[in-house]
Amino acid sequence: MLDYEMSNLRSAEKALERLGGSVAHARKPAEAGEFDALVLPGDGHFGEAMRRLDESGLAALVTDAAASGVPVLGICIGLQVMFEGSEEAPGVPGLGLMSGMVRKLDDAPAKVPHIGWSHVTWDPRCPIAPPDDQPSDFYFLHSYAVQPDDESSVWASADHGSTTFCAVAGKANVIGFQFHPEKSSVAGLDLLERWFGYEDAMVGA
């Protein structure tokens, strides 16, 4: 789990541990050691997140891992930095793991930041979508949302006011949640558990 000082990592860490994961923090690449998967947790400002990722060398760790097929999971700002840039920090390049930009949510008629629980609608191509009969409400806390250039990267969507935005973006071994699974009670823990299974399958492959 990358510790780039953007958020408290504790809940995400504890959620993964509860599911049987073994979580280590890395503030720089040397601290990462050997790992089966990378997690970018967080909330905060896109420009600040990228600055810390670049200065610590963690940005290169992520792009290398993603390119070599290691499972990478992003949460909230951890998803946003996977894209090419953000309206929150014009001119600051993102990690570019997926093509597209991060855009500000429309602040009418709904309130921004979007804080609270929203229903998430899954695309069948998402390998870890919950079964149809399971609850699919997740906790969001954000003012920006990713806009993948490639429609096939939109693995789930949600509505805020009259806007539909990308709630889960993915591409092969890379996946990111705009919501906070570690704050989404049973639905979130179940989702992380399915990611574990999927991640195991990829690591084993």
Binding site: R10, S11, K14, Y139, L141, E182, K183, S184, S185, L189
Partner: peptide, 11 residues
């Protein structure tokens, strides 16, 4: 706060 963050998975 520390203990709650370990046990409670809602905000």
């Amino acid at each position: 706060a520390r203990h709650t963050a370990e046990e409670v998975f809602i905000p």
